[in-house]
Amino acid sequence: MDNTKTAGSNIPVKIKNFLSTHTSLVTFIAMLIFLGIITNGNALKLGSLQNLVVAEAVRAFGALGVGMIIITRGIDLSLGQVIGLSACVSASFAQTADYGSALYAGQEFAIWLPVIAGIAVGAAFGLFNGVLVAYGNLPPFIATLGSMSIATGLKLIYTRASTLGSLKNEYKIISQGFMGPIPYLLIYVVIAAIVIWVLMNHTKQGKSIYAIGGNAQAAKVSGINVKAQLMRVYLYAGILYGMAGVLMSARLGLANPLTGNNMELDAIAAVTVGGISHAGGVGTVGGMMIGLMTLGLINFGMTFLGVNSYYQLLVKGGIIILAVYMDMRKHARKE
């Protein structure tokens, strides 16, 4: 259909097409420019942008994970608590040995142990969710609601309801370091996004994931092992949450039972704003990232302008509802 168009014939039409196919990107850039103007450019200084990236980095991992799950028509409510649990487990192995209140006081662990342990926790929960949803046929909402509660409980038990602080500097540097002006966290996010992008767009598995979300029956008829693929998506998401947990504890320099609370809502909201349809089968990695940065920019901008955080909640809520409304309209029109 598009090969019938003669190239370069009508520039305004091209711009219009670009605007309508990249709404979220355009919106994001417009907001960025707008924020720049009303703050006389102060909000767009290097330091501000670094803050913006650092603040959203951990959430980005969660968003990538839950984004994939939503594309399969699922949902994952356990995201925040799994990240929190992973943060607590990784933090417990990264406390300085001479810190009296450390969970394993006096014990020295290798620096890779907290990283591996944190990711393992995430992967275990991902696998658990995946098995429940794919093979147990539980609705994703219920399965992950259950694992969310389990993760919360384990978090409290494991930490004995206290804060795990005093993490080693060489651990904290994982999240707090900079390569020139570029925060390490940004590098991780870019790598993770590229990996997921390749997975979703250039592998058989990615095609299968989109197909399952778009029409599970058609996927099955095409010979795709729907259950195995579904389980893997939850597993991958879990691994991403595990990484998020590690980066979270390294960034905060601590973890406690409150870590990760409500993150699932932020991540789901971000990918929703980024055009990931809850009707399944639709959404791009780029969209997830733009959605995340849009909400991040709103958070950042309002903090920058000193807006009462209660109003921030209102604006955020409004934007999420609007994004889903648009999504539903788009689908209603097709039918």
Binding site: T23, M31, F34, I298, V315, I319, L322, M326
Partner: peptide, 14 residues
């Protein structure tokens, strides 16, 4: 409309 409302959101921020 979405774009407009998002811009309004930022404006209301101000």
């Amino acid at each position: 409309l979405l774009t407009l409302v998002l811009c309004l959101a930022v404006l209301s921020t101000a």
